[in-house]
Design a protein around this nucleic acid. Structure first.
Lengths: 259, 259
DNA sequence: CGAAAAGTTGACTTTCGTCAAAGTCGGTGG
DNA sequence: CCACCGACTTTGACGAAAGTCAACTTTTCG
């Protein structure tokens, strides 16, 4: 199985372009305002443009990278969405992250020069590829880029920590509430509706991510709907009562929360 | 409350040295082989030495940094140990990390320029302080240092992901087993006994970290002792049956692990 | 020495996972 | 166009793992 999809016949090696150059101008990208190269000078920006590669789009279920494969590039989601899955021998696969447009995938591969988990498209997905050695070279000359890379990784550390708090101390209801609010916020900051959106992941993915059985996810969503907190129709979700949802997510009474 | 302890009267501002220069030679440090500057050229190493500061030692319970305080420096543990605690309004404090000698504390502060959680000494602890802006400057000139910083952050991302898998999919027994094996490995790689060691954290800290009630920690440890997997005497721990402990930790039958 | 903090143990309760069965959706091919 | 297939989802019944509450013991430290 090929991991990085570069073309129908996968003939082109790293370094090749599968798309015309005009698409590689970050300035013109709708995501520019919330993507990695934000804040670069004109000159630095064009150097950045120059290292970007554009693999062919991924179809639902296709892998962007395969666990333990040699790490070479970071990827930025341009459209669509992805999940990261960690496969452990003899254990159920564990979903560790969902990635939306503008988010950077692959930082965890730097440490050991191999991808920590597999990354799979949840729907048709376009990505930009950033060969890491070239990015690192550029980071030497462009302090702003270096800073942005550090900030980006740091932000991911914060997110992971939030997740650890969620998994370790909160009830099923609170996890789901936080999850939906988190997604809502991410959509909002991308200019999409924070109230109604499409879940590209299955109940089972959500369950794995939140440390819950998929049946529990389904039941909690049904109950939230009864309580008029949200309305759910398959994978279409509308947040009906944002205030109560926030209250629930932040409620003091999680697990292990004695007086 | 002062967060970074620089001296009895906390009179010295950032940039001051509280310790004589001879102590700042990384080359002579016992941790050199597994610390950040590993692999730097002689010249780069002395530039690195030059930016290190040495705050006064922390006593048990003292804070190295305070949640939300402005981020300025990374710290490396030189001796002793620390815990990171995330305090959420109205919720129980959540322990997110333990830090042992040679480990870097504070990467999560880069993103927002403020410390993500509080960091507290679990025993008498010495640290080296690395003002981040100086480190970043140096990272421009020294590619090896830059690479090491990226790798270090990436490693932390991998560790957090391992933790998320643990919290999300494993039983109390498996969490404790993994926790002890993880500590064991970290002690081993520091040249300490991987079989018998001292737990500098309380049962309650362990519980918080692993998403378990402290009573559960106590009970599981007692049972492990009955089963001759470990022997515990207060905070002294000996691993008696490493093989079974590994088998338990990796066992396919966690939670949500259907056929 | 004594108070406070940390740890242990038991009894009881709750949440959530497991198993099972039925229902829905989406895509494919006749 | 419609029927069929597989993947996904919902719902119910039941049980087990772990949380909560409470009492008591041990350790730590001023």
């Amino acid at each position: 199985m090929t991991a990085i999809v570069r073309g129908k016949s996968d003939r082109s090696g790293p370094g090749s372009r599968s798309r015309p150059a005009r698409e590689t101008r970050c300035e013109r990208c709708a995501l520019y305002a919330r993507c990695l190269p934000l804040g670069l000078e004109v000159e630095a920006l064009s150097s950045f443009d120059a290292i970007i590669e554009h693999p062919h789009p991924l179809k639902r279920g296709q892998r962007l990278m395969h666990q333990s494969q040699t790490f070479e590039s970071l990827f930025v989601v341009r459209s669509g969405s992805l999940k990261q899955v960690v496969e452990q021998p003899g254990q159920r696969d564990q979903v560790t992250h969902f990635y939306l447009p503008g988010e950077v995938v692959g930082f965890d591969g730097i440490a050991e020069s191999r991808c920590y988990g597999s990354v799979v498209a949840l729907e048709s997905t376009f990505v930009c590829e950033l060969p890491f050695h070239r990015l690192d070279d550029l980071a030497e000359q462009v302090p702003e880029l270096r800073g942005e890379l550090f900030r980006c990784m740091s932000r991911e550390l914060c997110n992971d920590q939030r997740m650890m708090c969620l998994l370790s101390g909160r009830t099923a209801d609170q996890r789901l509430a936080s999850f939906m609010l988190g997604l809502s916020e991410r959509f909002r900051s991308r200019g999409c509706s924070p109230y109604c959106f499409h879940l590209s992941m299955s109940r089972s993915d959500i369950g794995s991510y939140l440390g819950l059985a998929l049946e529990t996810v389904s039941r909690v969503l049904a109950r939230f709907q009864e309580q008029r907190l949200v309305s759910v129709d398959g994978r279409e979700l509308c947040i009906e009562d944002h205030v109560s949802l926030v209250a629930l997510a932040e409620e003091g009474a999680g697990r292990h929360s004695g007086p």
